[in-house]
Amino acid sequence: MPRWAMVIDLDKCVACQGCSIACRQENNTPAVGPDQAAMGRALRWNDVVPLPLNAEEVSEISGEHATATVRYLTRPCMHCDNPPCIKVCPVQATYVDEEGLVRQDYNRCIGCRFCTVACPYGVRYFNWEEPPWSPELARHINPDYVSENGSLEGPAVRPKGVVEKCTFCIHRLQKARQQAETEGREFRAEDYRPACVETCTAQARFFGDMEDPNSTVSYLARSTRAFRILEEVGTHPKVIYLREG
């Protein structure tokens, strides 16, 4: 059984936000409009944020002119091994599946937002209103969705009042499995890549099976540069970052 994980090399990342755009197209995250976004209601399954996030003086640039540095962090869902979000869900709308993916079922979610409160990474988003789809955008909706036993997951267009989050493009995993089956061959971990990994301009993102000791992600996760965000809160994230420098 694979354990899917992502490695992001911050030394290579150029903060182009290509991952965020690819994610938006792939997963049908609605554009909420400038006034709602200003209220903090934009939905960004993958977000590129400046570091430090809440400095005393809000400036993305630190240091003098010769030593000025800008730091950004690109942040999908961490798909924690010990996710604080799933434990608080009163209806099991979010859960970890056997491959380590943290899933979210739009048909089950009651919109209590306990998971959004419990997640220390802030990667969960709530549909405050009916997701707006202008006719032009609606023509480009990704028709994929994931459904098991009456659930509704993946890029399926969300109703209002439910929580959504990065799924590591779980519909792509299903499609890759189906394709391998039709081609009559074994499914390989390389067949499955989320949209952000595929699009990354600087090839800073790596994706694969953590169980396989020879996979790229396993190899990179053993690097001395490897770290996880907020390791101290005991969530054991499966998104591993490689430090700059």
Partner: peptide, 17 residues
């Protein structure tokens, strides 16, 4: 008042975790 889907309120008892 607080939950986004009051129509699914009883899920708490049906699917409770």
């Amino acid at each position: 008042f607080d939950i986004g889907r009051p129509d699914r309120f009883l899920f708490v008892f049906v699917y409770g975790r």
